[in-house]
């Protein structure tokens, strides 16, 4: 250190700083992005839970369309509704099932309420924004798809998803990847056709259309029959809005929906940190160089004395 004069010091400091700045530069853009409201003409699905009878035809259709492995039980076997995973929770999406129907016995309701669970295809998906290999993509059609050929398997998307949707093929040793509903993008949505589950549903529980039209329809249904629905379209604003939205006659928090998610997309909770990154990259080198110069002032003075 003694031999280090200011010039060589600056050289070293700049080289280090430049290397890091190069690494961090791409992040600067992120800090400035504001909320993305979704593609204007993206498609969506309105799910009217009051209409679902729990026949699980959607599950069977999904299994066939997505070429998923044979289920553990037949798709007309109602015993799956009583299955409980850890914590007494109902079935959830898995690597073998991109959609599942859950049954809720609601006190005071004559019949059980059935709830279809699958990826909600967020406008600003948490999975997408958390992925460090950019595997996810929100298509203009509205689907959240992913490229399994680049998935490293860090599973941050599963941590980030507020709806607990992405599953992972843990059973594979060679090629484990994330598994989730892609709204039948490859086989249907891309060609303007509705997802297989929507088409298969006998009850037309699900309405497929442009998201903005579905929103109007949803509010129309509520105002037409105010007694038949709670006045809330789940997914209209949750975590920045989702392509899949829900109508129910039972308050959503009673049937397993998280009603505390807020209206901000998940990325907005991360932005404070992301915004700080370029600041650290810029300020730290100067700040600590200054500290160094100050704390070594005596050495420097001594050197100057020696020279003169």
């Amino acid at each position: 250190m003694k031999k280090l004069n200011r010039r060589s010091f600056l050289k070293g400091g700049l080289a280090g700083g430049a290397a890091i700045a190069a690494v961090g530069a791409s992040k600067q853009a992120v800090a400035g992005t504001h909320n993305f409201g979704g593609y204007p003409d993206s498609m969506g699905v309105l799910v009217d839970l009051t209409k679902c009878v729990g026949c699980r035809t959607c599950e069977a259709a999904c299994n066939k369309e997505q070429d998923l492995p044979e289920p553990d039980k037949a798709f007309d076997d109602p015993s799956v509704f009583e299955e409980r995973r850890e914590g007494g929770l109902p079935r959830r999406t898995t690597e073998k099932a991109y959609t599942v129907v859950q049954k809720y016995d609601v006190p005071g309701r004559e019949h059980p309420l059935f709830r279809k669970v699958q990826c909600n295809h967020c406008n600003e998906p948490a999975c997408l924004t958390s992925c460090f290999v950019n595997a996810y993509k929100k298509t203009p059609e509205g689907a959240v798809i992913y490229d399994k050929t680049v998935c490293v398997g860090c599973r941050t998307c599963m941590v980030a998803c507020p709806f607990y949707i992405p599953a992972y093929s843990y059973s594979s040793a060679i090629n484990p990847v994330v598994k989730k509903c892609i709204m039948c993008y490859d086989t249907r949505l891309k060609f303007g056709r509705p997802p297989a589950c929507v088409e298969a549903c006998p009850q037309e529980v699900m309405t497929f259309g442009k998201r903005k039209d579905l929103l109007k329809l949803a509010h129309q249904r509520i105002s037409d029959k105010p007694d038949a629905y709670v006045d809330h379209v789940y997914g209209e604003n949750e975590v920045g809005g989702t392509a899949w939205m829900y109508l129910s006659d039972v308050p959503f928090d009673k049937i397993g929906y998280d009603t505390h998610l807020g209206t901000q997309p998940i990325i907005s909770y991360v932005k404070e940190f992301l915004g700080m990154v370029p600041m650290v990259l810029t300020i730290w080198p100067a700040l600590f160089t200054g500290f160094h110069l100050l704390s070594n002032r005596k050495d420097a003075l001594k050197n100057d004395d020696n020279k003169s």
């Binding site: 069977a60 798709f75 007309d76 992972y168």
Partner: peptide, 21 residues
Amino acid sequence: FFHSGKYTPAPKASAEHGGGH
């Protein structure tokens, strides 16, 4: 389509089914 009737899956003996929770 429903994996029912004669297409009903054989009951799985093992408890470990690709991640239950």
